[in-house]
Computed example of a mutant assay.
Amino acid sequence: MIPMSLKKIANITNGLLYGENKIINNISINSKEITTNTLFIALKGKKFDAHIFIKEAVKKKCSAILTNKKIIYCISYIIVQDSTIALAKIATYLRNKINPKILAITGSCGKTSVKEMTASILKKRHNIIYTIHNENNHIGVPITLLKLKETDKYGVIELGTNHPGEIRYTSKITQPNIVLINNIYYSHLEGFKSLLGISKEKSEILSYLKNNGIVVINLDSHHLSQWTKKIKNKKILYFSIEKKKKVIFLLLILKLMQIKHVLLCIHHLEQ
């Protein structure tokens, strides 16, 4: 990430800074991964509370803490109402400040493979960030964006979900220039009840697409009619196997190894 002062972070997160204003070069939510000039963010969820690891983070010599409550340690800290939302606000700030062109990918299956293939091509020519493994939820997406540096030109971000509203939340943070909905299939039905529910949730990736953004859609997906209003006035690229439409998205990565001028989608990104 780019260096930021605690005062700036407090301003971004609507938090209160206690102690010395320091420069932060790294943000971590894991007390075991503290390095020089690190801000440790103590997240609190339904089943965990990282505030119990503040003592360990201080012992590891973190520079400051972002927390939901006052702490007793002799260290600079920022108090916010919700540390998870604060994490998202910092990520959103960095996304807008550095302003890379971002491709956001979702779908019921195959999105991780598509993300990996796309990133492997882009990083041959450019500095990029991309989702590591499957860190594609409301925590993993902002953590990925925190890695942005001034030299990064592109981001390839995977957006996953297991409950309604999650993709809308991560899409708001990501603000993509291009979105791909890889497919709609039977997965996470316990959270969405039906294919229609899954389709509606996946379409939330379109909610914060940039005004001049591009939508890439699998014509073989279920319930495409649900997306009509959201893709109105957007540039749309289609691909299909069953309907035999011209495959536009990544041309299956030009057989993956035959990479000459890096693809149609990258051409659109650079326009």
Rank of each mutant, 00 (worst) to 15 (best):
I41C: 06
I98R: 06
L224C: 02
G107K: 00
C109Q: 12
G140P: 04
E33C: 05
F249R: 10
A57E: 05
N21W: 13
L264P: 15
I214Y: 07
I41F: 08
K8S: 15
K101H: 15
L254R: 12
K229G: 03
I9Y: 14
F239W: 15
T170E: 08
K153C: 10
G45F: 11
P142S: 09
G107A: 03
F249D: 14
L94F: 07
S194C: 00
N11I: 13
Y238S: 14
N183T: 04
E270F: 14
E56M: 05
I54Y: 03
N96V: 05
L148H: 10
Q258P: 07
I98Y: 05
I85Q: 14
N162M: 05
S194Q: 00
H223C: 07
L250S: 14
S76L: 07
N162F: 06
E201Q: 02
G110F: 15
I102L: 12
F40K: 00
I214V: 13
A42K: 03
S221E: 01
G15D: 11
K147V: 00
H138W: 15
N177T: 07
N162S: 10
G165P: 02
I181Q: 01
I184E: 05
H138C: 14
H138V: 10
L39I: 06
Q258E: 13
G160A: 04
T174S: 07
H222S: 12
S221L: 02
I198N: 00
K229P: 02
C62F: 05
C62W: 08
L209I: 00
L66E: 12
I12C: 09
K202Y: 00
G213D: 11
H188Q: 04
H267K: 15
Y18C: 10
L189C: 02
N233Y: 11
G140D: 08
S120W: 11
A42L: 10
T38W: 01
S199P: 01
V141G: 08
H138K: 10
L66S: 08
L103I: 09
I248L: 10
A42R: 03
L87H: 06
I12S: 13
H163Q: 12
N134K: 05
K89V: 09
S108T: 02
S207E: 03
N218R: 01
L66Y: 12
W227V: 00
Y18A: 15
I121H: 12
K7D: 11
I231A: 08
T35V: 11
M117S: 14
F192L: 04
I29F: 06
S203L: 02
A42S: 13
I41E: 08
S28I: 06
I2A: 09
V80E: 15
G110A: 09
N25V: 05
N218M: 01
N182H: 02
S194H: 00
K97T: 13
K229M: 09
L146N: 08
L94C: 09
F40N: 00
I78N: 12
H126R: 08
L264N: 15
Q271W: 15
N68M: 11
H133E: 14
N183M: 04
V141E: 04
K244C: 11
L256E: 11
A104L: 05
A88L: 13
